[in-house]
Nucleic acid binder design. Structure first.
Length: 843
DNA sequence: AGCACGCCGACT
DNA sequence: GTCGGCGTGCTC
């Protein structure tokens, strides 16, 4: 038949029903994808990126993400059918799937682990076994002998329709309730089924509006008034509604209606009369999905004016973006980087793209969110780890739908379903907290952001006052662009850094507990002048350990190779690695002496000592222990901001992003513990930390003072801190990194071998290291060595460090070799129960 | 990750 | 004799 003739016929019905298969990512740590068959009727609904429900194994029903659709029937097994499709449109985008694949490859984990970390659990479905009465079972009539416990279960099921196993367990209050369930199944009194439920529930409000014909047709309202005259209450409601929604002015207002509660909270208007109006068909009730995030309706801030320096920085950045994908904005604390970011975000939005603004957790404060809200209003999504799961799911949906054009978020915000990114900002890019340490995926959000930008053709702006050596190296070698802002905003001066030799003060006996006389005098002087003080101590708790004066006994964790920290407030000894805790003993369990003394010091002791020495001071502590509750962090900040507290003692938390105008002194209690940390990044971190803390001192005209307590003020790093000489630090560090082969000259992978038995762990690590050496070469493999903390959660640790040269090594091949070596180890009968974890680019 | 199948100790 | 402990292995 010629094509011309065909032209007159309607299109053929789809007789050729294609058999399609879907490869899905299960939210489990499994190395590969699983292939399911798509039922014909779902051919159009199953798309890459939607969630589908499948049966996995004999019982389990799981929701998973479709990664690929094809016609290739599996050769060696019968594919099961997909049971259901959950989404009309994909909830994971194609560029996202590419990114997840990259994360799994690069960080040596499974796609399932990435999906698990990425999806808010409200979007993950859970299957729970449910128990209900057997449909043919009638407890009143059927005469089946039942045990007393079984009767109890049947009775409860009559009340509840369906129960879970845990419900039954709670009901019977015995451990071995399974046998009763089993027995009841046998007696055909109950059945078990799987239920998958969507946990995400949008927040809705009940709203009401007038039924349409009353507003659409002339004269209907007048008629209604007459009708309702004998019903004064109902008339009242109608009048009230019309007052709030002036339909006569604009008919369209009716469509939006008003919240039902807006009428019922008036004592004269009762819910029942509203309901009867609904019944009559005068009003109609409808649900509206509303945002869990309060929308800031306050007028948009006037366009802010960038300072000359900020404007210049912005222009430079935009200029560099023309040739380079990544630019570092090196701006000292207080140089006003945030305004530059905001301006760039606006610029990107005008171009129609999405923007992701990443911040470390401690820097994502209410202050910054409020500020961004003022500028971007409803377009801004916030993604914070303290948010509830529903809130996170809502941001996810909002990014998908395009409601949120800008997202400000923490590390995990890199997982959001962007599909049209044009700019990513990674503020405080040097922060170690961008790296997830445990569990997998052990990803670095900065690197992940760079890859995402690459995949979506977006630009990345990294920002820091103290860039990481790796980042700066990339700028120095011209891979990335560099823009500097080294002037403090408003000509604020650099703080004056004073070093105090605590060794000398100790000899002169002028130390008061852990305070040098200089620091203590400094604090007192500020208090007199009504100024505020921040004290930094990089250790929480009261004391890192306690010791008996008589017999030198030191309490240790029973699960980890660490001493227990003393937390005075709770009267406990705590392990900071596994959370084990016990009551602080009153006398020594070893010798019975009552001479237990705390050794060293943490934030809690600083707070305590200070309260004793300066009773008039209002001291507040800010660390992991005081900020666990949802709003406690905000409260502490607020109290300090409005002057309720004069001295803030804290860990890392006090170093980030907080701008207090009245702080004129910052004290660093024990600089040495930070400088002498056994790690190749110790100096870099110490510099970053000291400079960041110092940045809290003196703003807006008041030059601040920083007092650093150390046993050796001659250490070179202090000169660099004093003059905030980043270049000097970089020059020194990069030289060391080159000489001793550390990043950025090599890529590092830390392989940790864990086992409950010390010898097994050690032997396995030796065998693994040998295998790795054979595969990768002698130069590349270091160790195994026993880490400083050699036992955590009852597992003995051994570490192997792998250094892969940047050039001439195929990273992918090398990782494949490492994965194979680990697989090989797992197969050895001697090492049953061994756990091996690979951490790529460890921090 | 779960859950099933499978092989050895303390109880109805 | 059974219930039940958790070791190993598989899940499209």
């Amino acid at each position: 038949m010629s094509e011309l003739l065909n032209f007159n016929y309607p299109p053929e019905p789809a007789v050729d029903r294609v058999t399609l298969f879907a490869d899905v990512i299960l939210p489990l740590p499994l190395p590969k994808l699983y292939t399911y068959r798509i039922p014909f009727e779902m051919n159009d609904e199953v798309l890459v990126g939607v969630r589908v429900i499948v049966q996995f194994g004999a019982k389990r029903v799981l929701s998973c993400i479709v990664a690929e659709i094809h016609e290739q029937a599996p050769a060696d097994y019968q594919a099961k059918y997909i049971l259901d499709v959950l989404d009309d449109t994909p909830i994971v985008t194609v560029p996202q799937l590419k990114l997840f694949k990259w994360i799994a490859d690069y960080y040596m984990c499974t796609l399932g682990e990435v999906i698990n970390a990425a999806l808010p659990s409200a979007l993950k479905l859970s299957s729970e076994s449910r128990i209900q009465l057997h449909p043919h079972f009638n407890p009143e009539e059927d005469d089946i002998p039942l045990a007393a416990q079984e009767v109890k279960i049947i009775y409860a099921l009559q009340q509840n329709q369906a129960m879970t196993f845990t419900d039954i367990g709670n009901l019977l209050q015995v451990k071995s309730y399974h046998k009763y369930i089993k027995s009841l199944i046998q007696k055909e009194a109950i059945i078990i089924y799987e239920q998958v439920s969507d946990k995400f529930s949008p927040k809705v409000v009940k709203k009401i509006r007038l039924s349409e014909h009353f507003v659409q047709e002339e004269g209907m309202l007048e008629e209604l008034f007459e009708q309702l005259t004998p019903r004064p209450k109902q008339l009242d409601i109608l009048l009230n509604y019309l007052q709030k929604v002036p339909v006569h002015q604009d008919v369209n207002l009716n469509y939006k209606g008003i919240e039902k509660s807006a009428l019922t909270n008036n004592p004269h208007l009762s819910k029942s009369s509203i309901d009867s109006l609904i019944k009559k068909g005068v009003l109609e009730q409808f649900d509206q999905i509303i945002s869990r995030f309060p929308v800031d309706d306050s007028p948009r801030q006037l366009p802010m004016n960038l300072s000359e320096h900020q404007l210049q920085a912005k222009d430079e950045i935009l200029g560099l973006f023309k040739e380079k994908d990544t630019v570092l904005l090196h701006g000292v604390t207080g140089s006003g980087k945030t305004e530059v970011y905001i301006d760039l975000i606006k610029h990107a939005l005008e171009g129609g793209g999405q923007v992701l603004y990443l911040l470390p957790e401690i820097a994502l404060t209410a202050q910054i969110v409020t500020r961004l809200m003022k500028v971007f209003g409803e377009k801004l999504g916030v993604y914070h780890s303290k948010f509830s799961d529903n809130e996170r799911a809502e941001v996810w949906q909002g990014v998908l739908s395009g409601r949120f054009q800008v997202v400000v978020g923490v590390r995990s915000a890199v997982f959001l379903p962007f599909h049209n990114l044009s700019l990513i900002i990674v503020d405080e890019e040097h922060e170690a907290s961008y790296k997830q340490y445990d569990p997998a995926p052990r990803y670095n959000a900065r690197e992940t952001a760079l890859m995402m930008a690459h995949l979506q053709g977006a630009k990345t702006l990294l920002g820091s006052a103290t860039p990481s050596i790796e980042t700066y190296y990339n700028c120095k070698t011209d891979r990335w662009g560099l823009v500097t802002m080294l002037k403090r905003f408003g000509e604020a001066q650099l703080p004056d850094v004073e070093l105090v030799n605590t060794r000398e003060e100790q000899q002169r006996k002028t130390m008061h507990s852990h305070f040098s006389s200089k620091l203590l005098d400094g604090i007192e002087a500020r208090l007199k002048r009504q100024e505020q003080v921040i004290l930094f101590q990089n250790r929480r708790g009261y004391a890192p350990f306690i010791s008996c004066d008589e017999c030198s006994w030191i309490p240790k964790c029973r699960n980890c190779a660490v001493s227990l920290s003393y937390h005075k407030f709770s009267g406990e000894l705590r392990c900071h690695y596994c959370g084990y805790h016990e009551r602080m003993p009153s006398d020594c369990p070893a010798c019975g002496a009552t001479t237990l003394k705390s050794m060293g010091f943490g934030t809690e002791k600083i707070e305590d000592d200070l309260k004793l020495m300066l009773p008039s001071a209002e001291v507040q502590r800010m660390d992991l222990d005081t900020t666990k509750k949802k709003n406690s962090y905000q409260q502490i900040i607020a109290d300090f901001e409005n002057g309720k507290t004069n001295v803030l003692v804290g860990t890392q938390m006090v170093t980030k992003g907080l701008d207090f105008e009245n702080v004129s002194l910052v004290g660093i209690l024990n600089a040495d513990s930070i400088i002498h940390f056994p790690d190749f990044r110790a100096h870099e971190r110490a510099f970053q930390l000291f400079v960041q803390v110092s940045g809290r001192a003196g703003r807006k005209g008041k030059p601040g003072t920083v007092i650093i307590q150390t046993r050796d003020p001659m250490q070179a790093i202090f000169r660099k801190v004093k003059s905030v000489d980043y270049e000097a630090l970089y020059a020194h560090e990069i030289e060391e990194r080159m000489r001793f082969s550390y990043p950025p000259f090599v890529r590092m992978i830390k392989v940790t071998v864990k086992h409950a038995d010390e010898r097994t762990s050690e032997n396995a690590a030796i065998v693994l290291a040998k295998d790795l050496t054979d595969r990768l070469g002698k130069q590349q493999v270091l160790g195994p060595e026993i880490p400083y903390i050699f036992r955590i959660r009852n597992l003995f640790l051994n570490e192997i460090h792998i250094k892969l040269p940047r050039e001439n090594v195929n990273l992918r091949t090398a990782k494949g070799q490492i994965a194979m070596a680990i697989q090989q180890l797992y197969l050895m009968p001697d090492f049953k129960g061994i756990r091996v974890v690979a951490d790529v680019d460890p921090m």
